[in-house]
Amino acid sequence: MTTDPVQLLIEAGAIPSSPFGPNSRYHGVPLGHHVSDAGDPGTAYVLRRFIPQRRDIAVVAEHIVESGERPELLAARTLGDAELYWRLADANAVTDPFALTDTLGQRVAIPLPPGM
């Protein structure tokens, strides 16, 4: 049995185990917490999210960047949800989503939409 106050609150349902929605890149990533020397419950934080390897991401199409495109607009058009821009970033192995659309004519891999 744990005596960790934050874990007890999570288990009691007072703190959601994942405060992030299903479209968030952090959905399902466990929470950690920092306990101060004073013993108070501390500060919750998100543990490390490991980006999947490109070889493990199913790519279904390729898109050529045109003028005025932005990552979230591309995600809305290709994946059906602007909040899924991070899936495009993961599939193209970039940490800055704007790197996807900064260069006209750049090829962007489009991953399989969620749920397929």
Rank of each mutant, 00 (worst) to 15 (best):
M1W: 13
T2S: 13
T2V: 14
P5M: 04
P5Y: 12
P5H: 12
V6K: 01
L9Q: 13
L9M: 15
I10A: 07
G13L: 07
G13K: 03
G13I: 00
A14G: 14
A14T: 03
S17I: 01
S17V: 08
S18D: 13
F20R: 04
F20H: 13
F20A: 10
F20P: 09
F20D: 09
F20K: 02
G21A: 11
P22V: 13
N23V: 04
S24M: 10
Y26S: 15
H27V: 08
G28N: 13
P30Y: 10
L31Y: 06
G32I: 10
G32P: 12
H33D: 06
H34E: 06
S36L: 10
A38Y: 08
G39F: 07
G39A: 05
D40Y: 05
P41K: 00
G42E: 12
G42H: 15
G42Q: 14
T43K: 14
T43V: 14
A44C: 15
A44N: 07
A44I: 14
Y45T: 06
R48Q: 12
R48N: 11
R49M: 13
R49Q: 10
R49E: 09
F50H: 10
Q53P: 06
R55D: 15
D56N: 11
A58Y: 08
A58F: 04
V59F: 07
V59Q: 02
V60N: 09
E62P: 03
E62N: 11
E62D: 15
H63M: 02
H63K: 04
I64N: 12
V65T: 08
V65E: 13
V65H: 13
E66Y: 12
E66I: 05
S67D: 12
G68K: 02
G68Y: 06
E69W: 02
L73P: 01
L74P: 00
L74F: 06
R77Y: 04
R77H: 06
L79Q: 00
E83F: 13
L84Q: 02
Y85H: 08
W86G: 02
W86V: 04
L88V: 10
A89I: 03
A89D: 11
A89N: 03
D90N: 08
A91N: 04
N92E: 05
A93Q: 12
A93P: 00
A93F: 07
A93L: 05
A93V: 09
V94I: 00
P97M: 07
P97A: 01
A99M: 14
A99F: 13
A99T: 14
L100K: 01
D102H: 03
D102A: 10
D102R: 03
T103E: 15
Q106I: 07
Q106M: 05
Q106C: 07
R107P: 06
V108Q: 09
A109E: 11
A109T: 01
I110C: 02
L112V: 11
P113N: 05
P113R: 06
P114W: 02
M116L: 13
M116V: 11
